[in-house]
Design a protein around this nucleic acid. Sequence first.
RNA 1: GCGCCCGUAGCUCAGUUGGAUAGAGCGUCAGACUUCGAAUCUGAAGGUCGGGGGUUCGAUUCCCUCCGGGCGCACCA
Length: 566
Amino acid sequence: MCGESCLTIQGMALNVTELLAGAVKTALHAAALPAPEAVAWEIPREAEHGDYATNVAMTLARPARRPPRQVAEAIVRHLPAVAAIERVEIAGPGFLNVFLAPRWCAEALREILLAGEGYGQSDLGRGRRYRIEFVSANPTGPLVIVNARAAAVGDALARILRSQGFQVACQYYVNDAGTQFQALASSMEVRLRQALGESAELPENAYPGEYLVDLAQDYLARDPAGARAALALPAGERLERLGRLAVDTMVAGQRRVLEEYGTAFDRWTYEATDVRAAGLPERAIDELRAAGFIYEAEGALWFRSTALGDDKDRVLRKSDGELTYFAVDIGFHHFGKFADVDCVIDLLGPDHHGYIPRLKAAMTALGHPEAAFDVLIVQLVTLLRDGQPVPMSKRRGEFVLMEELLEEVGRDAARFTFLTRRHDSPLEFDLAVATRQSADNPVFYVQYAHARVTSLFRTAAQQGVAVPPWREVDFGRLALPEEQTIIKGLLQYPELVAGAARAREPHRIAYYLSELAGIFHPYYKAHRILTEDRPLSLARLGLCAAVGQVLRSGLGLLGVSAPESM
RNA sequence: GCGCCCGUAGCUCAGUUGGAUAGAGCGUCAGACUUCGAAUCUGAAGGUCGGGGGUUCGAUUCCCUCCGGGCGCACCA
C-alpha cells in the first residue's frame, strides 16, 4: 500500500500526499476511471484552496472523455473515508481541494514526536551506494571562498541522501601530477632559493602567492640541511621532492580547514599514485578500445566522443606520448569512483561545464547508465562587505581564504548562507550581513527559534512542570489556526527532504527552515505556552518540541548547529 | 560564430518539474517589551515575472525569436 518514501509509525502514515493519493486511486478505481501512475499534489497558496490540491481530474478529463468537473465529482463521490481528510471541495476548472482534519493533525503531531530523530528520514535510497566528489581544489594553494561553497553543498547533499537511505561516500581528489604540479614545484624551488638569499625569479606560469614564501621559510627554519640537500639534487628529483613537500603541506592545510568546517571525506585520492601509477587511464583506454571508441590520428590517440553527444572528438594521448587530463580523469572515474558504488555525483566549478558532455560520453561508452552519473555545477561567489565588492585578484595571488571566512563569520553562518541559494546560481556573500546577529541573517533567525524552544523547556522545568510521555498528551487542545498551520508545516518535512534529495537541492531545506521559524516566532510571541491550563500547556509544549525537533533535524542536514542557547 | 546557465519588488533571492488573485528576507515608512529569550513581533507601500510570438482549459515554468548579462568552445588542467 505504501510507496517508497512512505514512513509508517504506529500504523499511521506520515507521508500525507502518499496517503491522499491512495485515497484518490481507490476512488478512481471504484468509479471505473483510469488511474494515472502518480497523483500530483501541491500545497495551494490560498488557504481557501485547502491544505493539499490535485489536478488529476483535469489530466484525466481527456482520456476519460468527460469534462474535468464531472471527473472530479466522480472522484469525490467514490472517495473512501480517510481519517486525514476533513472534506474535499471541487473548485475552478476541476481542482480537488483537500482539507485535513484537525483531529487527525493532532494525532499526526504525536507521531512526529514519537518518531523523534527518525522523522524526516526514509528508505527512498534502499541502500543504494553513492559517491560524491567535491571541493577537490588543486594542491597549489589554500582553499578559498568558492571551495567553502562547494564543501557546504556537497556535504549537505551527502547528509540529505544519507537521511533518505542512501549510502554515501565523500571523495576528495588531489591533482598532484601534471603541469600544475610542475609549476608548483618550480615556484617552491624559487621561493626556497630566495629564502636562502639567492637571486631567483618566478617563472611565467608560477604561483605567486605569499603562502609559498612562508612555506619555504618554514621549511628552511625547520630543516635547513634537508632544504639545502634538496636543492642540490638533480632537476627531476629536486622538483619531485620540493613539489611533494608543497603538496603535502597544502593538502594538510586544506584538510584541517575542512575539518573545522565539519566536512568529512571518506576517501582522499591522489592522482599521481592512486590513478596514474596504478595504470587506471590505460586500462580505461583499453576498455574504450574494445568498445570501439578509440582511433589514432595525427600521431595522437582519440576518443570518439561525438558518437555520444559531444561536440568534437577528444584526445586521450597526445602526440608527445603524454596522457591528457581527460584520459586520467576517465580512468579515475571508471575505476576510482565507480568501482564500489552505484552512482557518482561530481560537483564542478562553472569553468568546467563545457567538460561535462565529454565526461558523460566517456562514462556511457564504458557502460555506466546515464542516470548513474550526475554533474552539478557550483557557481561562483562574489564577496561583499556592506554591499561593496571585496577585491580578489588571482593574478597577484590575493584571495579570500576559506580560513579567513570561517574566522570572520563562523561555520554556521557560512554554511547556511551558501545553502540559501541554488548551487548553480551565482551567489553574493556579504560578510557584514553574515556576521550581523539579527533578523537579516537567516541562520540566526532559525537558530534562535531552536534556542527559544530549548529555553522554554528549561523554564518549564524550573516551574516544576512535569512533561509526561507524548502518548498521554491530548493534542486535540491545539485548536488555534496558527497551531494547525504549524502542524501542517511540520507534516511537509519528510516529503521536502525527499524532494531535496531527489533534485539534489539542499537549499530547499534552508528555505523550509526559515519558513518554519517564520510561523513559529509569531505564534510564540502571540500565545503563552505555559499557562494555568495544564493540559493545554502540555499540548503546546509538544507542538514546540516538534518544531524544535524538526529545526534540529533540518539544521543537521545542512551541517549547521542547533544551539540550546545563544 | 556554436553550446550551456541566467534575467521575478529598490537590493538579495525563492517559486514544490504546467495551476487558481505573484512570494520571502532585507531596505523604506508606521507601531509593540510589568508576562515563557525584543537575535522577536504587528501593519503599510512596493511587480508589464527582460520584450514579442506560440503550445492549452491554464505559462514565471515548455517551444521559437529578439534584447541584455555570465561562462565554455585545446594534442591546458
